[in-house]
Design a protein around this nucleic acid. Structure first.
Lengths: 335, 335
DNA sequence: TTGTAGGCGTTATCAT
DNA sequence: ATGATAACGCCTACAA
């Protein structure tokens, strides 16, 4: 159904290998035939088959990126920086979503491997420790984000970021600080929870499991978790949230329950989305170096593709951005 | 570097074709050898090459989806519904971003065609009338969204949606209604602009080009456009925005300029993102049937893949959702 | 039920 | 500078 180099060869009265050379700017070919063939290819509507080519060259110049879902605004700058850098290096990027489902994530990696992509980046893996043993099942370069049990992983410093955020709340006088989690991002969630506990520890505040609620990284998840926390413990004064969308959900729930932020309750997010700055009130949050993470992930992957194997996991710094959703605790006599 | 059917054949002491049959559940093969080979394939870590297979079967069971950018939250439900339906029909979906650049969009379609995907869906094409003539350049099924110059296109009724939104503002007493555009989504923008003009026309309000500002579909674009409009025409009382993110940007700019919404100015968005309901104040907006659009696009593509050619373009209805960002004009003596 | 042979579209090696 | 040939991994008639 589509034009092949043989069709062009026949039309030009040359052999297929000559056509191949002409189309690939091979040095050993006459300018005349090269131009003739290129023109012919153009007007015959020839587009090379990556299948045929990939089969013989054993490389597809393609990078597969596995994301959780197209919905997550946090992914945007990360993916964009990956695409940018891939393009600069002659690679095409394809995305595939896992829907935060470990099985589908595996399916996405398999789909990429079946198509023999040059390498894969998995953002927000659900498969905790599995990639170690996946290396012989899918023998291709794989780079993860936020997974410290895997040698090739680019992470931001979730532990320190979370610790600082919660320390900030404690410094403002908050003693009852809730954490709203996101089990869908297993590793990341674990780290942020660890930072949360470290900050409490340091301040001598005992961990209260009733102040830990389960979210899912979305606005709705934040609303539900906040509602649940508000009914079980009305005394808590601050929320540390897995991410910004969760934090916005919390603020919505608080508003619906008649509380004002930050007068009555303080809220901290994570990610520093564009929206965080422009939400009203503007979100206090922890900024991740998203673009940097994407570039580092891509650079590591390129090195792996080129055969460098001495790559070390990297942890990039995070930064607490204090805006308008955190404030001091109002003493009880002020009410 | 990876295991092939010949490796398995050698290990099992059979011919490659027997292995192929065993792996593809071919009827004419003994159960014993089938199980032996399947087990062997498993433990040897065999994963078939889609390159070799696709070359001979002439189909890859893959759908390519071209999106503008991973950043656009409007895309999420659309893409998700496409993925869902593709999965149910045995297809794998890959995403590729065009960054709203016509050249890159073409590159994405080409990349998909080179890999001989079964079909392509382009969401928010930048190539206005080009797909008509692209059909012989890339002879594979292509479905677009929101492009009325192309036979296989799934659109929502942008004209009517925009008209109703602006009519709603006019009914509230607004006479000076601005439109903030988004040239990056050419066709869609044209339609929404048309609806805007129709509503003005119907009310006998002359079109004022000074009330039309250029945005880019993002929050920042909305902020900039609103600032520009506010300096050039302080009398305008309402903004009809290309989409919800633009509308949020407008609200931010209004707040910064000391205006309250909807008391001083009214704002209408488009898309009805999740965020629209939860923003404060909640956005009046035009809802698109996003999931439905995705399903329809995928269904049309599947029909094209299966050889049905009598598909007609569809326009799905939109719905005005009135919330808290629109209100009556306050008469000047009220100030 | 299994093996043999040919070919999918392309590139690479070796002659010419 | 060009052509013939083989090979990449897989599937599928056809033959056994």
């Amino acid at each position: 159904v589509s034009v092949t180099i043989r069709d062009i060869a026949q039309a030009a009265g040359v052999s297929p290998s000559t056509v191949s050379r002409a189309l690939n700017d091979h040095p050993r070919i006459s300018v005349a035939t090269k131009e003739l063939i290129q023109q012919l290819a153009q007007q015959m509507g020839y587009t090379p088959s990556a299948l045929g080519r990939g089969l013989v060259t054993r490389q597809t110049a393609t990078i597969g990126v596995v994301i959780t879902t197209a919905l997550d605004p946090f992914l945007a700058p990360l993916v964009t920086s990956i695409e940018e850098m891939a393009r600069d290096n002659g690679y095409t990027v394809f995305l595939s979503s896992s829907c935060s489902d470990p099985e589908r994530e595996l399916g996405a990696v398999r789909a990429f491997y079946e198509r023999r992509v040059s390498g894969v980046i998995v953002i927000g893996s659900q498969i905790e420790e599995g990639y170690f043993k996946l290396r012989d099942r899918f023998p291709l370069p794989i780079v993860l984000t936020n997974c410290r049990t895997y040698p090739y992983s680019i992470a931001s410093d979730n532990v320190v970021g979370a610790r600082r955020a919660v320390a900030h709340l404690i410094q403002l006088g908050h003693r009852l600080v809730a954490y709203i989690s996101n089990p869908r991002s297993h590793c990341t969630n674990l780290d942020r929870y660890a930072g949360y506990r470290q900050a409490l520890d340091k301040a001598g505040i005992p961990l209260d499991q009733n102040l830990v609620a389960e979210g899912n990284g979305t606005l709705d998840g934040g609303i539900n978790a906040a509602r649940q926390l508000l009914t079980s413990s009305q005394l808590l004064t601050a929320f540390f949230c897995f991410n910004d969308m969760t934090a916005i959900g919390v603020i919505v729930a608080l508003r619906q329950a008649g509380f004002q932020v930050p007068r009555d309750k303080s809220v901290v997010g994570f990610d520093d989305l564009d929206l965080a700055l422009y939400y009203h009130p503007a979100l206090t949050t922890v900024r991740q170096p998203t673009c940097h993470m994407g570039q580092r992930a891509m650079r590591t992957l390129l090195e792996l593709i080129r055969g460098k194997d001495d790559v070390r996991p990297e942890i990039l710094p995070t930064e607490l951005i204090i805006r308008e959703t955190t404030g001091p605790v109002i003493s009880s006599d002020g009410q």
